[in-house]
Each structure stands twice: as structure tokens, then as C-alpha cells.
């Protein structure tokens, strides 16, 4: 069942009154969030706050039990056909990259195109090489993922997702599994992407990135959206005490790290 387009047609992702439980644990509580075309939204919060679960509901890697998730004007309600079509337009990058280890870098980027979009092989290769070039990994196109560093793998994962020409990109803690010296190279690619106008929803702890790129920062705690604000206000004048505590922890930690 595909629901009719809503009046707010520019909303790429529309989430209303979303509730999700893992067993008896109520992990998402009445979440409502709209993301418009070209918008960059950063979701942050302490671990276990439900931010990854929320982003995974957008492409239904997690199924919600209550509420509405609408992506590109289509409601996601368990219809598999429609879901696959939506997923092809929603790119996702994972914390652990999840490249396919049995395929070369190039094949990682071309197989989803040829197999799921019906792109001819030659065109798929051309597109893949172009995007690998963009993430500065073209020279490694014929290597296997296991031969590359974490930062390189994550950049390839981004290129692989972009090969599908997605309308929205989801990032689920893309830098959390990386060694510190590799975080910058991945954030650079993401910043570049943001400047090109890609619609992005990022779960991340990188507050520098959030400050520079985000249109809106969403702070979650214990399954709820506690605060939603543009970066200037979020960092300089957070309203909720929970946000203030979180920010002070992150900033203190940052000082320690240096």
C-alpha cells in the first residue's frame, strides 16, 4: 500500500509519532522529525539514546511498531517491493563499513548498480570510477577491502552508496570505528558531499563536523528527542539541562583528548 503524497511534498523524510520497542524496552518514544530536500541533520546523544535505531528505521533495517515513516513521499509499512525501491534511493553508511569482502573495491561499487538498478556494466564502471575518484580511492579500485585501512574502507562505502545516486544519505556513526588519524579523511568527504547539496542525516559524535555542516542538530536521550536546534543555538544556548550535560561531557572529553 502506497499512501498519497502529503502536502509537505518537499519533505524527503517524514517521521511522525514513531514508537519502537525491543522486547519490553521502549527505545523510541513519540519521535517526530521532518527532513527536507538539501537539509543536513545531525543526530547526537549519549549511547543507548536510540539515535542509531531511529536512523535505521528510515530504511527499515529496523521495523517500527507504531507511527509513520514516510520516505520520498511513500509510507514504509512492511511492503517489501516498495521498500526495496525506496532503499535504492536512500544511501547508508555504517559504523563498520560493511564492504563486501569477496568483491574488489570496484565490484563493490558496480554490483549494486548492475544488479539492482539495471545499469549496463560499462556505465556502472564509469560511474563507480568517477565516484572513487571523488573519494580519492580510484587507485585502489582493484584491491580487496581487507587490503585497505578503515578510513579508506569507509570512503569506499560512501562511494558505493553514492553509486546508487541516492536522494538521501544516512550515516550511522561513520567515524566511530576509525583510528583518530583517519577520521578527518572521512569527514572531508562528508563535508564535500554536504556542500554539493546532498540531503544528509548523520548520527555522529563529531561536533566540529556538526557545527560546520548541519542545518539542524537533534539531541536524543533515552529514546526521546530532547532538543532540536540550529548549530549556533545548540552549542551556545542549549535549553535542556540534559543537552547541557551532554555537551559539557563531550567538550571536557575533547580537552582531555588533546
Amino acid at each position: 500500500m502506497i499512501s498519497k503524497p502529503k502536502a509537505d511534498a518537499a519533505a524527503m523524510v517524514r517521521i511522525e509519532q514513531l514508537n519502537k520497542w525491543f522486547g519490553n524496552a521502549h527505545v523510541l518514544k513519540n519521535i517526530s522529525l521532518n527532513v527536507h530536500a538539501g537539509e543536513k541533520v545531525v543526530i547526537c546523544g549519549p549511547s543507548g539514546s536510540g539515535k542509531s535505531t531511529l536512523i535505521r528505521c528510515i530504511n527499515q533495517l529496523e521495523q517500527h511498531q507504531q507511527g509513520l515513516v514516510e520516505v520520498l513521499g511513500e509510507e514504509l509499512n512492511g511492503n517489501l517491493r516498495g521498500l526495496e525501491r525506496i532503499r535504492r534511493q536512500v544511501g547508508m553508511c555504517f559504523q563498520h563499513f560493511n564492504l563486501f569482502p569477496h568483491l574488489t573495491v570496484l565490484k563493490n561499487c558496480t554490483l549494486p548498480q548492475t544488479s539492482n538498478l539495471g545499469v549496463p556494466e560499462a556505465e556502472a564502471i564509469e560511474r563507480a570510477l568517477g565516484l572513487l575518484d571523488k573519494v580519492k580511492m580510484r587507485d585502489h579500485a582493484n584491491k580487496f577491502p581487507s587490503q585497505l585501512s578503515g578510513g579508506q574502507q569507509q570512503r569506499i562505502a560512501i562511494a558505493r552508496a553514492l553509486c546508487m545516486q541516492p536522494k538521501v544519505m544516512l550515516f550511522d556513526e561513520p567515524t566511530s570505528a576509525l583510528d583518530p588519524e583517519m577520521i578527518a579523511e572521512v569527514l572531508d568527504v562528508m563535508t564535500g558531499l554536504a556542500l554539493e547539496g546532498m540531503t544528509m542525516i548523520c548520527v555522529t559524535h563529531e561536533m566540529g563536523f556538526a557545527r560546520k555542516v548541519a542545518d539542524r542538530i537533534v539531541f536524543m536521550d533515552q529514546g526521546e528527542i530532547v532538543e532540536e536546534a540550529p548549530p549556533e543555538r545548540f552549542f551556545s544556548a542549549p535549553e535542556s539541562p540534559r543537552t547541557q550535560r551532554f555537551l559539557s561531557q563531550i567538550i571536557n572529553h575533547g580537552v582531555h583528548a588533546q
Partner: peptide, 14 residues
């Protein structure tokens, strides 16, 4: 790893 299934799903593989 579960991530392999998830990556495939996220890329629209049936």
C-alpha cells in the same frame, strides 16, 4: 557478520 546482510538490504538487494 550481520552487517553484510544489512549492507545488502540498504543497497536494495532483494
Amino acid at each position: 557478520p550481520k552487517g553484510q546482510y544489512e549492507a545488502a538490504m540498504a543497497l536494495g538487494f532483494g
